[in-house]
């Protein structure tokens, strides 16, 4: 198992698409800081009355929206890029114990995504907070514990999406099909849930992967109220999604001919 993890980590860090994905995460982190500078600048031009009515998005908002896309791409490429070239056969020849290989790939991709997400969220948030300084923006100055919990769950949700996509990729075996399906789930399905009659629109939306971190630990200082699930239920649901995707993916990976 250690050999398999080491080999998969070696693979992940020696292809350029990995650098591209994490490069994108880095760029969005910098954009979080730029956004914070803009908010501070805008704030300075407001009257006291306007300031009391203004709610700025928290500094990590940009990352919270873009991390899922990066997570989907990483999760898909981890396996489907090998099917495109036939590399999966080379991988299975080197590491023929399939469940071990599947686990190592999941661990490396999920772990790398979690580390990159948490690092970029922390840097983006703290950078943004430093840029706005002592301006009284509530979304920038939440309690440390609640802020940390919020960032942690946004990061965990990104890692969860990487794992879900990885499981889907093991079944579909195609980069295009996997990324299209998952981005459809992230971008199109939320819009469709809004077409349902109330209160089913909120209920359906609350079940979507991207809606879960906000229901578990909302960004401090935001008005909140999005989603109808209690935090523990949302957390369990995230774990269930990951477990189902990985179980189906592992079954497909272990049982089908390579």
């Amino acid at each position: 198992m250690i050999d398999a993890f080491a080999a998969e980590w070696y693979k992940l860090r020696t292809i350029r698409s990995t650098a591209a994905v994490f490069g994108a995460v880095g760029v969005f982190m910098l954009l979080c800081v730029l956004y914070s500078w803009y908010v501070g600048h805008y704030w300075d031009g407001l009257s006291a009355a306007e300031r009391s009515r203004t709610e700025a998005s928290p500094p990590d908002q940009l990352l919270a929206v873009t991390l899922p896309v990066c997570a989907v791409v990483l999760g898909a490429l981890t396996l489907t890029s090998e099917y495109a070239t036939g590399m999966h056969r080379t991988s299975l020849t080197a590491l023929p114990r399939r469940l071990t290989l599947f686990t190592a790939k999941a661990g490396v991709a999920g772990g790398a995504m979690l580390a990159a997400a948490l690092a970029s969220l922390a840097a983006g948030f703290l950078g943004g907070k430093a840029v706005v300084g002592d301006r009284a923006l509530p979304t920038f100055h939440g309690p440390a514990g609640a802020t940390a919990a919020h960032l942690l769950w946004v990061g965990l949700a990104a890692a969860a999406l990487t794992l879900i996509t990885y499981g889907v990729g093991a079944v579909l075996r195609s980069t295009a099909a996997t990324i299209t399906s998952m981005l459809g789930l992230l971008i199109v399905v939320p819009v469709l849930t809004r077409l349902l009659p109330s209160p089913w629109d909120d209920r359906a939306w609350s079940l979507l992967p991207e809606a879960l971190p906000g229901q578990i630990a909302a960004a401090p200082g935001t008005s909140g109220g999005e989603g109808v699930l209690p935090a523990p239920v949302a957390a369990v649901l995230m774990a269930v999604y990951v477990a189902i995707a990985l179980a189906v993916g592992a079954f497909s990976f272990v049982r089908r001919d390579a």
């Binding site: 080491a6 998969e8 070696y10 693979k11 020696t14 070239t85 590399m87 080379t90 080197a94």
Partner: peptide
């Protein structure tokens, strides 16, 4: 042809060696 084109020759053998 079952190699990732973006990887360097040394690294292609490198991960195989690491895994075994």
């Amino acid at each position: 042809g079952a190699v990732h084109g973006g990887r360097r020759a040394f690294d292609h053998l490198g991960w195989l060696a690491r895994g075994n």
